[in-house]
């Protein structure tokens, strides 16, 4: 250390603490911050506050893009518009026919459910949000949308487009919220194979725009081209939404699990608009199952 000191310039000028002292001080703070953020999740409110402060700067940064979009919208050629209009009309006709069938079937379904005494399938209202920009971190697959907690968005809501699930809201800031895409490594969705009803959990693979189905045995009944839909048992995603399609199955002899790779159905990187579904209200759980088992009953169940 003494030899190091000799290389320092003489203290003619007031320079404050040496860079090394400063580095140690700030490094200690940032390591503490990282630990607190990763393990204890205390900083969510702090971050939301700062995000609200950063919002004006973000608006400024987005202004050129927004202006460009507006002018482009304005000068879109009329022929394109009429063509698009015709296509939309056709689709509307087709869909309205299907919708009518859907209505009658829904009524029928409700009637049957009533007959069965089953819980009513919950109706989830949705909000249309627009993607503002993709996440700034190249390691994660996230997008930022323009609705936030001021508009009633909460962390945990499901996000979808017209083809299927695209992800889940993971953080709601005051004026925007962060949607983690299904291809992100940290997102898991409970799914069901549409063909045979097999339940599993799908994880984002984190790269190549793919979804993995891990922990399924080698002899599992899954074929290439199978459709994965949400199973709806988590209370977040309504059941029956398309999630992905099985693209490739690798069965290696050295692993007890099959390696199943799926491609997401939704246009994850294509659209500007997403639908944010409100959280499903969990159906009422019957009282006797919700009550914690009393010691006596547990005792009784253990010894039949």
């Amino acid at each position: 250390m003494a030899t190091l000191q000799n290389h320092q310039p003489p203290a003619f000028f007031i320079r404050g603490p040496s860079p090394f002292t400063r580095l140690s001080f700030f490094a200690a703070i940032s390591i503490a911050l990282m630990a607190v953020d990763a393990r204890l999740h205390y900083l969510t409110e702090v971050r939301q506050g700062f995000a609200a402060l950063l919002h004006p700067l973000e608006v400024v940064a987005h202004a050129p893009m927004a202006a460009y979009d507006q002018t482009r919208d304005f000068i879109t050629r009329q022929s394109i518009l009429t063509q698009e209009n015709r296509e939309l009309h056709q689709r509307n006709l087709l869909q309205s026919a299907e919708l009518q069938r859907f209505h009658t079937m829904q009524a029928e379904n409700e009637h049957l459910r009533k007959l069965l005494g089953a819980v009513q399938a919950s109706h989830q209202p949705a909000k249309l949000a627009e993607i503002v920009h993709t996440g700034r971190d190249p390691f994660t697959h996230k997008v930022i949308v323009n609705l936030g907690s001021q508009q009633g968005i909460m962390a945990g809501q499901a996000a979808m487009d017209e083809y299927g699930v695209i992800g889940q809201v993971t953080q709601a800031y005051p004026f925007s919220s962060e949607v983690t895409l299904v291809t992100d490594k940290d997102l898991a969705i409970p799914i069901q194979i549409e063909r045979n009803g097999l339940r599993a959990i799908a994880f984002g693979s984190g790269h190549d725009n793919a979804i993995d189905l891990p922990y399924l045995p080698m002899n599992v009944d899954i074929r290439e081209g199978d459709k994965l839909v949400t199973s709806g048992i988590d209370g977040i995603y309504p059941s029956g939404l398309a999630v992905a399609k099985v693209a490739r199955i690798e069965r290696n002899a050295d692993s007890p699990f099959a390696h199943i790779i799926c491609t997401p159905t939704a246009g994850i990187e294509n659209h500007r608009q997403v639908l944010l579904l409100a959280m499903a209200t969990m159906p009422a759980i019957p009282d006797e199952t919700r009550k914690p088992p009393t010691p006596r009953s547990r005792h009784a169940s253990r010894r039949p």
């Binding site: 400063r22 700030f26 490094a27 911050l33 953020d37 971050r47 700034r136 971190d137």
Partner: peptide, 20 residues
């Protein structure tokens, strides 16, 4: 860090180290 929405403090540590 705030703007990127990642783990809090990672850019701070990296920038401070590079500055040093």
């Amino acid at each position: 860090d705030l703007a990127s929405g990642g783990l809090f403090g990672q850019y701070a540590l990296a920038y401070a180290f590079t500055a040093f």
